[in-house]
Design a protein around this nucleic acid. Structure first.
Lengths: 344, 344
DNA sequence: AGCATTGATGTAATCGATTACAGAAGCCGT
DNA sequence: ACGGCTTCTGTAATCGATTACATCAATGCT
């Protein structure tokens, strides 16, 4: 059926071209060192045999790999992370690197990621999950690989990060609602303790302070960045005796589920209450009513993080001036749509 | 800053344990061949140095890799593909394989995927995109890697596939609407020529036939499995003089955008028309009205495909009896929700 | 006791590419 | 014509682990 046609090696090409293996190698990686007609002979043989250098051997010899491991949280917010990954992959690919996705499972399962990082297979590490694989006191950072955090800061000393200015972005949610006249707010948060949640919470509290609403103007419900969290948050909201008119959601999925649930209970958005999400996923513009939200530069977050890592890997460490603390902050953008409006 | 603490090699462990490299290697991969106390000595040294075998060297020697390349279409339907990938990754990880994601960019860009496949880095290939990277007459299959197609059949001789029974599933869409009394149907398709689209189209036409509705009962609009396709389809629908009451969408994203657009134009769903989607992404249960759809076993499609590949890689080729034609078919499930109802 | 057998461990070849170094060939000037 | 340069190409060491084969000691058998 399938002929086990053994892949041609450099020696086969050398024989076919009537030269030595060194010459073949040079024809491929340093053509200027060869006489044009020698190079030509080699190239003909390469094409004839369909030779592709074995990159495992190459990598062993060179002592470095071109694989980058990206740590991805499992089953959360695919529309958001897919676009960040897209930014990462585009940038890596352009620089000749290849992306390996490592989904975090939690607990013992993550050991395989730690071992992968230590195995010499991988050149660098990118994490878009606030948590890093850590099993039995062994961290994935122990391997000593160059690493960069994206979207969430695991809070590890010396680990550069490309982040959204979550505090500012969350404050924008408050400011938008306050500017529309909402005096009391309901907040369906992300998972308690989560980096993004903690940071945004700080931004929300500070903005409420600044707006002069008073700390008691905020009622919180712990969500988890998923649809179910939005539904639960909405049920809690509906059970309130005196409902706030402004609702802040931890992300767009949460907001969409929240909107659906309170509408099913007979409330109108935005007539009875305003809802604002976070992330700016595409879907936010295709639900009803269209969702006001804070858009994150998802592609750019990924691209910028990957760029940073590549610069470290390739040695141009100072190609881009790193701000103090090793963090690059990007800004979110308010998208005011139909789910929020002025209240009288 | 970061101590360039060179990763320990097998020789370092050998010296530390006072044995030869062969003994260290055996302690790790064939412990039963060693005297217990020797093995113990080695293990102590391994732990003390924090040694992890370099898998590049191991792979070069062994002649086979543990990486599986998954070809993923770019920027389409993340909620769907994320779950298929999850199924793939879980299965691969359990068998000791590691997943590499290769996003298809189209055209010249895909050359890097073809080269990756030919580079010896990769043990096998999985594709969840109907298209295979093919550049200048060179196909990714030329590398001769074991491969399995998932979700869409690229139509290559001898390539096993794990597929949804698209024809049957699409027929279920028609049957559901027909059973509710809809006699004329509007169909916002997938991209013309796409494997899933072609197959489902066949199923739709056949089901209309069987339901005795007549070929002219179907009005088609070419979509593309995205939100924008749904919006365009809805606009075309709204422009129709005599609108069908049943609408079939190529996937859930298309359906959600369709629903939103016709509602914005003042039509009611399901009072004025019924809409059914395809895929069964989570969101379909959180939009308004909740979307009737055909759920695909997304996780299982991925898991089953990965399993098939692993069996071929590990040599238990007949671990699972392969049906004729090398295809495994899985069935979709009708989820009847609020976007479809009986018409008078 | 002498030889064969078994078990445990060490020595060195091997995987496929890169590259330091060596060597050959051609050219120059004196 | 010969040493000194360049330019080009070949030989062999190297990356780190696995493993066939060699070695050595201990044991069993006659």
């Amino acid at each position: 059926m399938s002929e086990p046609r053994r892949a041609p090696k450099i020696g086969d090409v050398a024989v076919a071209a009537g030269v030595s293996v060194a010459t073949v190698s040079r024809a491929l990686s340093a053509p200027e060192k060869l006489k044009p007609e020698t190079r030509e002979k080699v190239m003909v043989a390469v094409a004839a045999l369909g030779y592709t250098p074995n990159s495992v051997a190459r990598q062993l010899r060179a002592g470095h790999s071109s694989l980058v491991l990206v740590i991805v949280p499992r089953r959360t917010n695919p529309p958001f992370f897919a676009e960040v990954l897209h930014g990462i992959d585009s940038t890596l690919a352009a620089a000749g690197y290849v992306l390996i996705t490592g989904y975090m499972e939690g607990a013992e399962h993550d050991l395989r990621l730690i071992e992968l990082a230590a195995s010499g297979h991988v050149a660098g590490l990118l994490t878009i999950s606030g948590d890093l694989p850590k099993v039995a006191g062994r961290s994935i950072l122990d391997a000593g690989l160059p690493a960069v955090a994206i979207c969430a800061d695991p809070g590890v000393e010396g680990l550069p990060a490309v982040l959204l200015d979550d505090e500012r972005a969350a404050a924008m949610q408050v400011e938008h609602l306050a500017a529309l006249g909402h005096r009391r707010l309901f907040y369906v948060s992300g998972p308690p303790g989560n980096y993004n949640e903690v940071t945004r919470h700080r931004g929300i509290v500070a903005a409420i302070e600044r707006a002069g609403l008073g700390r008691e103007a905020l009622i919180e419900y712990p969500g988890n960045y998923t649809f179910t969290g939005g539904v639960a948050g909405a049920k809690a909201y509906l059970g309130l005796a005196d409902r706030p008119t402004g609702v802040i959601c931890g992300n767009d999925e949460t907001a969409i589920a929240f909107v659906k649930t309170v509408r099913a209970a007979g409330l109108d958005i935005p007539d009875d209450l305003s809802v604002i999400g976070f992330d700016g996923i595409e879907l936010a513009d295709f639900c009803e009513p269209t969702l006001s939200t804070i858009a994150q530069p998802r592609f750019d977050l990924g691209a910028r993080g990957a760029r940073l890592l590549i610069d470290r890997l390739d040695g141009n460490a100072t190609a881009e001036a790193m701000p103090a603390g090793g963090r690059i902050m990007m800004q979110g953008t308010l998208l005011a749509r139909d789910s929020t409006r002025r209240i009288d």
